[in-house]
């Protein structure tokens, strides 16, 4: 019977292949192209004469003597101290992930086990909070942060991002904890554990798959953030994304665009590696909330 389901006409199969191929090119080619181009000079990547120069690297050969150049990377990382921004991003992202998960597991566990009506109301409230455009929240922080001298420090940006990510983290961990059988912690409590002891001794050891998946999404939210980091940090402690945006202000100078291109490729590389290793978790995380709902 299943053979019958999978039997398809040849032309239809061809159509599917063409469509999927088209999509893969659409999704993947821009990254490949930009990565390749980041090793060229501006005259090749933005070629007035012929875009094919970006492939052969004609002007790169004339200007630097070889078909590939690391000038863009050197300019971005060393001349424009992109390494500083990368370091800041690392501090911010690691802190956001750890704090988000700590608060989120406690809250998500409580929401999953409560069963009371107010837990549902809290989840609805979190959904409303999730919908708030981040910039509207930032415009509420800015003035008090200026007044209290909190503006421009990494910890401020970290705390704000943790809070903004909480609604999402709560929802996700809540649905993971629902999947862990209730009997597990309840039997521990029958044996005399308090709720917190039951959580720590019984639930914590089995919660890691869900926590890792949620952590990945917290990582992405913090790593990809532009709104909060661009408005709450000053030039001296910028993270990568606003730093790249600041390269663009000075694009008129020859070569500076290539700094931005190199920086963009550098910032994308960790994400590639992340997807490569955690593809399964990302897919399961995206569908966790949806398939059950």
């Amino acid at each position: 019977m299943s053979e019958l389901i999978h039997r398809r006409s040849k032309s239809f199969t061809a159509l599917i292949w063409v469509f999927v191929l088209f999509w893969i090119i659409l999704a993947g080619f821009p990254f490949l192209w930009t990565m390749w181009g980041s090793f060229k000079v501006q005259g090749d990547f933005f070629s007035k004469a012929d875009w094919a120069y970006a492939i052969s690297g004609l002007r790169t050969q004339i200007e630097t003597g070889s078909s590939f150049t690391g000038d863009g990377y050197h300019g971005a990382w060393i001349t424009k101290s992109f390494w500083q921004a990368a370091l800041n991003t690392m501090i911010v992202v690691v802190s956001v992930v750890i704090i988000s998960l700590t608060l989120g597991t406690l809250g998500g566990y409580a929401l999953a086990r409560s069963g009371k009506k107010y837990a549902f109301y809290l989840l609805m409230l979190a959904l409303v909070f999730r919908a708030m455009p981040h910039i509207t929240l930032v415009s509420g922080y800015l003035l008090p942060f200026f007044e209290w001298n909190l503006w421009g420090h990494l910890p401020t940006a970290i705390i704000v991002m943790v809070a903004i990510n909480q609604p999402f983290t709560l929802w996700m961990l809540h649905s993971f904890f629902l999947n862990i059988p209730k009997d597990l912690d309840e039997s521990a409590m029958v044996d005399g554990c308090t709720r917190f002891q039951a959580f720590r001794r019984v639930i914590v050891p089995v919660m890691w798959p869900g926590v890792i998946t949620t952590g990945l999404f917290s990582f992405l939210l913090a790593y990809n953030d532009f709104t909060v980091t661009a408005t709450l940090l000053n030039n001296s402690n910028q993270t990568m994304v606003p730093k790249i945006a600041s390269f663009l202000g000075t694009t008129q100078v020859e070569g500076n665009v290539m700094f931005a291109v190199a920086a963009v490729v550098s910032a994308t590389a960790p994400l590639f590696i992340l997807v490569m290793f955690f593809q399964r978790q990302i897919v399961s995380g995206l569908t966790a909330g949806a398939v059950k709902g």
Partner: peptide
């Protein structure tokens, strides 16, 4: 889950959301 326990579990997360999402809206 007892209301009291629920409150302590959810508190840190709730404080963060109230301080940085609910208050800014006001």
């Amino acid at each position: 889950m007892k209301n009291r326990t629920f409150f302590w579990f959810i508190l840190p997360s709730l404080v963060a959301m109230v301080l940085f999402i609910a208050l800014p809206i006001g």
